[in-house]
Design a binder for these strands. Structure first.
Length: 286
DNA sequence: GCTCAGGGTCGAT
DNA sequence: ATCGACCCTGAG
């Protein structure tokens, strides 16, 4: 076990990042958080804004996961000038980071996300881990790894349904089979173009445009990917199309696809967080 | 108790 | 391209 204290070069907000709907299994522990990055356990705390404490057998893997190297100033400079709404969303939480997640658990988790609230996604994820994952004692707690595709394939759809996945159990089970069988190799996709990865992911039953974009953004480091969900669509309509009626969902997606540029995924995350935290919630009126 | 929406996607028109 | 169905749980 190593303990390392990192002096942060760029704005970083640990709590906001771990609670921003990218990952769903980190738990508060003492003055920080415990969780797993794949098979690597970690305790993380941020005693001061510019300081991060990492307790982990593999601190290097943790730093990579947290994307501490992302140059936030450069990312913000790449955003459209004169976009005051986006600037406000960035200023609301400048330390938000897009993580580099292990691919399978990211994919699997977002497959189960459809028509669920963040807290419910978390519940499903934790139940799957507790039921089918490998227990890993760490700092007095017991963490559970995310179950492998083979494990979930073998478990069967009914067992997954028992973890309260509803109709998502069939999606996850079929995806697990496709990956366990080698029909789709997630790691081999790393070297392919974004559109190729997207097409491969969408070949899985239960993976549509939104989930594919989440996996591209949160696991394959495709920072231009811009997932459009109900929150983002609401936020975009309110912030960029206020007063315009009859704007189609497709028009909103197309706007999102070109307006924010090569780091659009970060813009999405800033807007998503801003919308959720400030309760930009009221149903879509004009 | 009952209604309703919740980080969507599929299959049929 | 548009539209209802889909499992089920917690909040109102």
């Amino acid at each position: 076990m190593e303990t390392e204290t990192v002096a942060l070069a760029h704005p970083f907000d640990l709590a906001a990042t771990l609670n921003s709907g990218q990952v769903f299994h980190w738990n508060r522990h003492e003055d920080g958080f415990v969780g797993l990055i794949g098979e690597v356990p970690a305790f993380l705390a941020q005693p001061a804004p510019g300081e991060l404490r990492i307790d982990s057998p593999q601190p290097g893997a943790v730093k990579k996961f947290l994307a501490l190297d992302h140059d936030m100033a450069a990312i913000r400079r790449s955003f459209p000038r004169r976009d005051a709404r986006l600037a406000e969303a960035c200023d609301f939480c400048p330390g938000l980071r897009i993580l580099r997640q292990p691919v399978w658990e990211c994919l699997a988790t977002f497959i189960t996300s459809s028509l669920k609230q963040v807290s419910q996604i978390r519940g499903m994820s934790l139940r799957l881990r507790a039921e089918f994952g490998r227990p890993l004692p760490f700092r007095g707690a017991v963490l559970h790894t995310y179950p492998s595709p083979g494990t979930l394939a073998e478990a069967g759809e009914a067992q997954l349904r028992a973890c309260q996945l509803g109709y998502r159990a069939a999606y996850l089970h079929r995806a697990a089979i496709d990956i366990a069988s080698g029909a789709l190799e997630l790691e081999a996709l790393r070297g392919r173009s974004t559109s190729e990865v997207r097409a491969a992911l969408r070949g899985l039953h239960g993976v549509g445009a939104k989930v594919a974009n989440c996996v591209l953004l949160f696991a394959y480091e495709r920072i231009d990917a811009f997932p459009v969900d109900v929150w983002i669509e609401r936020a975009l309509r309110q912030l960029y199309f206020a007063g315009s009626t009859g704007v189609t969902a497709k028009a909103v997606r197309e706007f999102a696809g070109h307006h924010f540029g090569p780091n659009g995924g970060y813009a999405q995350q800033f807007l998503f967080h801003y919308a959720r935290m400030t309760g930009l919630k009221s149903p879509d009126r004009d």
